[in-house]
Each structure stands twice: as structure tokens, then as C-alpha cells.
Design a protein around this nucleic acid. Sequence first.
DNA 1: TTGAAAGCGCTAACAC
DNA 2: GTGTTAGCGCTTTCAA
Lengths: 348, 348
Amino acid sequence: MPARPAAHRPTLEAVAARAGVSRATVSRVVNGGAGVRGPLAERVRAAVDELGYIPNQAARTLVTRRNGAIAVVVAEPESRFFTDPFFAQQVRGISRELAAHDNQLVLLLTGGAADHERVGRYLTGGHVDGALIFSLHADDSLPVIARNAGVPTVIGGRPTWPDPDTRRRTLYVDCDNRGGARDAVRRLLALGRRRIAHIAGPLDQPASIDRLDGFRDVLPDIAPGLIAEGDFTPEGGARAMERLLERSPDLDGVFAASDVMASGALRVLRARGRRVPDDVAVVGFDDMVSVAEWTDPPLTTIRQDIEEMGRLMAQLLLHALEPASDPDGVPAVSSIITPTRLVVRASA
Amino acid sequence: MPARPAAHRPTLEAVAARAGVSRATVSRVVNGGAGVRGPLAERVRAAVDELGYIPNQAARTLVTRRNGAIAVVVAEPESRFFTDPFFAQQVRGISRELAAHDNQLVLLLTGGAADHERVGRYLTGGHVDGALIFSLHADDSLPVIARNAGVPTVIGGRPTWPDPDTRRRTLYVDCDNRGGARDAVRRLLALGRRRIAHIAGPLDQPASIDRLDGFRDVLPDIAPGLIAEGDFTPEGGARAMERLLERSPDLDGVFAASDVMASGALRVLRARGRRVPDDVAVVGFDDMVSVAEWTDPPLTTIRQDIEEMGRLMAQLLLHALEPASDPDGVPAVSSIITPTRLVVRASA
DNA sequence: TTGAAAGCGCTAACAC
DNA sequence: GTGTTAGCGCTTTCAA
């Protein structure tokens, strides 16, 4: 199939011969041409074109130790990755930032632990200059693998490793989940609600835990019956809402840990004849516009700028890659917590 | 941040010294250990562990001309890629097949033409052994770039290049869009429908064209008013349905070029008081289960096995990579058209 | 400004 | 079986 099989590709050597110069000169021209006289450079460029020369990246990487590619590792099953708009937004932010610095984004999906080994090999094998890892669950080994292999890494979301020293040296980007949750609950209190429930995310994820913690910050004496765990899907939100109504029929406010779960909860409230926000006020989290603006009624929620977080992750990594940054100690840059903001629509 | 900076990583040489053997022996052990005596191999393995040796892929690729990675190139904006379940299924099929052969899947997204150049560089730079390209629109240059660079490629969907010789040499996997469309229309005819309309996909995509052609195969004298172009979204399907009803209020059957568009059409039919299938029978295409089973009524549709198509694409490529296959002529393997099948539910 | 030469880390003939 | 050796294609000192 190859028009010009890789095996027959011209090398620097060939170009040099053709242009009647040394390999070094060709290399200089190919890499920008600094310090090569105009006419000579022109001759070299002509030879490059005639031969259709394309530099061999493996050879280049071998000496420069750079390959202009950054891996984005998503440790989630494809199904989740492709359904949750969260990833789409994050990837877009990353993609933009990397493209701006002429780095190629390489997406690695690792559904099960079975893939971990191969992905780990890929990362440590030097195919990429660094990695952005989404390690949403507590038990993920990939960041550790990358770390041990000396692959600069930035994590999406707060990592959960117990060792404080390890944590301090790990770069991550997260939003102020806890503070945002507090704002959500305060909004409900300000509306005069006194029986406020929480639909939490899966409690093996730091984001869920932090949002629950924020909820408790404001409502420390909450009854356990007013908290139900969901799974970040609409169905999970609906089921949690049903459980809450059963246990606490008199509730008048709900803080859901995601807009998607809130949409499921709204459906149940409507089916049960509760008016929103009159009978029950609802606040979501994320401000996933494609969801929050289209629920009935539109959702009051806590906004986090997901695309911006993606961009920041890429920025942080690119920065850490600079030779100037401390090679072995505490990184010159530090982790980032982005702010959240209450967005008032009709549901609370 | 690196625990062990890449710069200080042990090399084969170091392991050899430590184990008191030659580099060649270490290399043999690392690559499976064939032809090395047990105890010696054991000593080498110990040295590898102690030093935490990891092979340098760039060096390896430089000599083997293989890097165990296959690119999947999606020439669509992220928004489309992440929303359309089609890609998720295809990628899953590919991913499974590649993993089974220990190849890493590398996903490259190229939203706009601006990214094309970088992606092209990545492909031709020898970062991957081959590429699977989804070139849904007619004007796509990526397959040509890959081809000229000698990167073995398999296309998802029938390519549209005019030159028959080029086409013959290009591997692709597609489903029998035209035949499937014929089956859809025949189903409607068998139900006694006589005023049958078609909601087409964007007509710059081969799949849309083929489905329209199949529709016309069975209904060659169709009035232009019975054909409306959609865009593979629910909204597009809804708008097309409205146009059709306006132009041909007496229609009694609809063949939509995708389940997603059909779902939008069903919504409009319901809003206009037409009963499905009594007043208007509807057939979709894809059998996207997450859609077809949940519409009201559930959708009769033409099934294509998308995941299987992904698997076949990967298989074809891996096969073309075998040294046995003809390096420069017509490939030893050939393109594949997968069959489709009518799936009867309630809408027709 | 240009060229010669020394590797980058690895694999694969070819000897022993 | 194991070691020796010659590259893979490129960048980058160092001299000229």
C-alpha cells in the first residue's frame, strides 16, 4: 500500500549527498536554518523537496530526548468516557493549549486494569514527554507508575495518596469542590429551606467526598437519612431522589453533586407531584450547560470551568517540562484549585 | 517531579555491566530470553530489577522500525466525536483488537484543517506503525498524506476519491449502506405504504449518499419533495420531518438515514398527532441500541455491527503490516463490506 | 559558516 | 549459548 515504503525513505545522508553538503548542514536547515548562508540553505531545501525527505522521529528523539507529544490518560471504561460531557470539555481545553505549543495530544484509554500494564509501558517507554492523567477513582496506580518512571505528570482532580510528601510533589488541577458545595447549601438556606438533602457522587471519588464535606461544613448535624449516594448518571440521581423522599418526605431542598444527577432528581420530583422550586428547591453542580439549561425548570447550579481546567493542566505540564524547572526536587510550579461560582436559574 | 529523571535512566549497558554479561545477552533476555541459559537469564533479570531498567523505545524503534502503536485519526470536531455513540462503539472494537495483539491505540483528534498539518507530521514522523482514519467528509486530505508518507492505512467508510486505481489500492471497511437502505424501503412497501419519504444524512458523506441511492434503487421515480436532508442529529431529523410533512402531508412511511434522526422525526410526528406506525411507519438505520430501544415506539431499523467494523479495521491494518504482504503493489488483503440486517421493533 | 566525528540506546548478524 | 561488532538516522560539540 505504501507509495514510498518506509524502508526506502531518504535519510539526512541522502539529502546531504544530493545537495553536496554535510549532514550537519542539512540538519541545521531542517531545524530552522540558523547559521546557514542563504543560498546554501536554499540548495538544501531544494534537495529536501526533491527527495521528499521526512525526518525520522525515533532517531531525533533518541538524541534530543523530546518527542513533542503529550499523553492524556483516561482510566475509565470507554462507555463513561464517551458519554460524560465532562471529558469532552476537559479534552478540548487540553487540546487547545497543547496545539498552541505545537505538541501533539495522544489519547490513551485504559478501560480495565488489564490495560494498565500496556499503557504504563507506553508511558515509561518514552513515547511521550509527559502525561495528563485522569485518575478519578481512589485506587489508581497509573500516576504512581508514571511517577516512578520519571514521566512528568499532572493529575486531573485531587489525588488521594495518603503520604503528604508524595502529595506535595504531585501536580494537579481541581476545582474548589468543597467551597462550591458550601455555596450551594448556603443558597438553599438563604431561600429559607430547613430540610436539605444531598445526592452525593460515588464516594470513592475525591470530588464526591469534597462536595459532601462542603455540605457537612454548613450542615454539621445533618441526619444520615438526608444523604444518598448516586453514581453521576441521571438514573442514579433519580434512584437517590426516590430513596430520599421515602426516608424524608418533608424535605424542602436538595443539593445534587452533579447537574446530570440533578436532572434525574427533577424528573422524580415532578413525577411525585412536588413543585420545583416551590415545594423543593434544587441546586446542582458543574454547570454543564447542555444539561442545566434544558432541565425543567432550568437548574440553579455551581459552575466550574472545565475547559479552563483542561487548559491549566496542559499549561502546568508544559511548564514543568521546561529545563529550568527543578529536575528532582519540589516542582517550580504548584497545583491549582480553580474557583467555583453560583449560577442562579429557576430551580432554586 | 521525576523520581528518576529520564536523563539518569539505566541503559542496557549498565544492566550488562551489573550482571557481568554482554549487552546482547541482556537484550535477548529483555526480549523474551530465547536462547539464554536459565541461570544466566535469572542473573540478568535480577540486574534489570535492581536497576529499574526500562528499554528506551526510541532506540528500539530506530532499529526495529516498529513501535507497537497504531493511530486512530478522527477528523471531526471534539463535540461530534464525543456526542455520537457511533465513534464510541467503533473505538471499542478497534481497541479490543489492538490490545489483543499488544498494540497501543493512540487517538488523534483533528477538529479543524488547522490541526491537519500537525497530525500529518505526527503520522509521517514514524510515531506509529499504521493509521485507522475516519474520513467522513468528502474533502479530507489526511488519508492522502498518510498514503504519500508510506504509512499503512485503513479507512473507516468508503472513500470518495475519483481515481479508480487509487481507490483499489486503498483499504477500507464499510457496511452495506445501499443494500441496507433497500431493505428499509422494502419493509415499508411490504407494510403497504405508498407515500414513502426519506430523511437523508449530510450529502457530503458517502454513507448518506449510499443510503439515498439505496432508497432510490427501490423507488426510482420518487418526487423530490419526499426527500429532505438532515445532519445526523435529533434536531436535524425533527426539522427534516417538519419540512416533509409540510410538502407532503399525505406521507405514510419514512426511512431515516440514522436512528438518531429518526428519534427527532418521531417526536415531530407525535406532536403533529400522527400515530406511529398506524398513520406513518418509520424505519431508522444503525440500530444504535441506546436510541432505538428507547424511542416511543421502539424503532424498527437496519442494523450494522459498528463494533465489529472497528475490529475488522484493526485486523485489516495489522494484517497489512505483516512483512509477508506485498510492500508496494496491491495489498494482499482487500476492503470489507459488512452486511446489514433489518431489526423489527414497533415503529414499522 | 561549514564539516568531521562522536555518540544517543538498542538490535541483529556474525563469530567464537 | 554468548560475545563482538556494526549500524539504525539524527543532533551536537569541536575544529577548521
